[in-house]
Design a binder for these strands. Structure first.
Lengths: 334, 334
DNA sequence: CTGAAAGCGCTTACAG
DNA sequence: CTGAAAGCGCTTACAG
């Protein structure tokens, strides 16, 4: 059996409460008593039982992270950073992969996953704002990387629209006029894809370039999706002089397809992405993309969520944080 | 307050034990009773309190996964698969990033992390077999992707040495004689790097090619490490006609450095990696590598660990599983 | 400053 | 088949 607080109390000749006081850094303990308790703890090798503590306190010191797929490089890098940031404040992160399935999102919001965690970092891909609000419960939730600018939710996100516009303007400045958008749906408006597409359209408009729906290539947000989307455009005979992947994985898949079909990048077709994952720097040609301030997003969202949990943040409207972005010009779109 | 089993019992007009029996699928319950309990559960929206269950049962239904860095693509893909496999058996996975720091590994083995999980998937980077054995405790532990063929441990791994030899032989068959090894240390023997290096040496020996320590380039196992290692070789004037990255990230970093320095891949220098991460297929040129059976590794290690936890696997020697591998020949080393 | 006691919400022998 | 009771190991009012 494990050593319990009772064992420590007995060994130190004090009551349970005194041991608890020492463990919880209660101030007014006689130094001699404190020392005796600490000695007993060291001698017996006592470790607090976290489950018991959770049952009693109602807190698990775990944060939930809901995202579609941890193997997507952007999410992998983000999750890694979030875990490190959480760890510095004494929390762990439990990941739930939704695979963009509605049921999983709903369950993460109100099922056992919610119970196991003191607060949630939520990247909704299927659920709408009202649905989420209806199932919110009382534990804190921070929207992550999302578009839902709603006073009901805390939100940490990036400047999707502005960054996409900046990137598009960069492509236009290089003389590109027919910029394919990989991973967008023409009718979409909310959501990450929608915001980035808006930025693209805004930049075109400003440059006086007509929007051509034929250049919009919807697909799954993975490398193979990007490759397939480009293949589709080419097979349909759509001409374009640039491809904007709505994230880096899409852009890299698109670039791969272009290269194996013999197109020169960037001479014939420029390629740009979004996210600035590590892979982008090391691609050949290296990938022009937008760095969306991932470090800031990770740090701010963890801080905000924990501040809510611990009551240090008490705004009764949602707190909204938008990280800065930076254009990373590399070889694929100079 | 949340609904408890007591509330359900009261609403259904039965005792606590009966509710528990229904929840735990105890067989001999009168159908009518069972129905009443289930109705009460549905009506009250009862959900079991997992913390209380854990405290009482001593089980958390969480598995611990200790690895160096979740943002490394191989680990991100592996973690994603492990989570899915675990989820199918009703378990969650809690990840701990060790950053190859000894203290973190030790704490994962016997600290709070261990307490929170029913069993561990452990990728030791620093700790040695004896150290691990000394701190093993009584909860199950499965070594993951490791070299420690020790009867004290369960182990699920890949054929590191054999696969590296096969890959090297492939390079030799293409006429390569001076194959740089990116990410190895010449003195190393245990560990993933050591095993892969052994495979390389064995293949050279078989081909009658002398081993040249000048071709061994140690570095951090990241893309930038691979790039820096190649830069170092070139700057020292070491000549080579192939580069074997001990994993794909290293190979991709190495390939990037070669390309920006104007080398033709594979014409002047062939490049090969190890892991077959998704990125390898979409690199330009696409990367020749070894697919180490990740799906098999994920499924087998989860099955083995859970079988140990639940007592379905009772071998008193360590169970050793080695997944099959496959050479993936692509453009970078035809 | 410290102690005795209640209770978080379950599971599990023990009876019947 | 079902009930009453103990107890997992903590934290936290409540006394003193």
């Amino acid at each position: 059996m494990a050593v319990t607080m009772n064992d420590v109390a007995r060994a130190a000749g004090v009551s349970l409460k005194t041991v608890s006081n020492v463990l919880n850094d209660y101030e007014f303990i006689r130094p001699a008593t404190k020392q005796r308790v600490q000695d007993a703890i060291a001698e017996l090798g006592y470790e607090a039982n976290l489950t018991a503590r959770s049952l009693r306190s109602g807190k698990t010191r775990m944060l939930g992270l809901v995202l579609s797929d941890l193997s997507a490089p952007y999410y992998a890098e983000l999750a890694s950073r979030l875990m490190k940031a959480a760890s510095q404040r004494g929390y762990r992160v439990l990941v739930e992969q939704s695979d963009a399935v509605a049921d999983v999102e709903v369950n993460a919001l109100q099922g056992p996953f919610r119970q196991l965690t003191d607060g949630l970092l939520f990247t909704p891909l299927v659920m709408e704002a009202d649905e989420i609000a209806a199932r919110l419960g009382k534990k804190p939730l921070v929207m992550l990387g999302e578009h839902i600018l709603d006073p009901r939710f805390d939100l940490v996100t990036m400047k999707n629209e502005e960054a996409a516009a900046t990137l598009t303007t960069h492509l236009v400045a290089d003389g590109r006029r027919r910029i394919a958008v990989i991973g967008a749906h023409p009718e979409e408006s909310g959501g990450t894809a929608g915001l980035r597409l808006n930025g693209y359209r805004r930049a075109l408009e400003k440059a006086g370039i007509p929007f051509d729906p034929a250049l919009i290539a919807p697909c799954e947000w993975r490398r193979d999706g990007g490759a397939a989307a480009v293949a589709g455009l080419l097979d349909r005979g759509v001409e374009f002089d640039a491809a904007f992947g709505l994230n880096d994985a899409l852009a890299l898949g698109a670039m791969h397809e272009l290269l194996i079909r013999g197109f020169k990048v960037p001479e014939q077709v420029a390629v740009a992405g979004f996210d600035d994952i590590d892979e982008a720097r090391f691609a050949s040609p290296s990938l022009t993309t937008v760095s969306p301030g991932m470090a800031e997003i990770a740090d701010r969202s963890i801080a905000l969520l924990i501040d809510r949990i611990e009551g240090q943040e008490t705004a009764d409207q949602g707190v909204h944080v938008e990280a800065g972005f930076q254009l990373q010009v590399r070889e694929s779109a100079p």
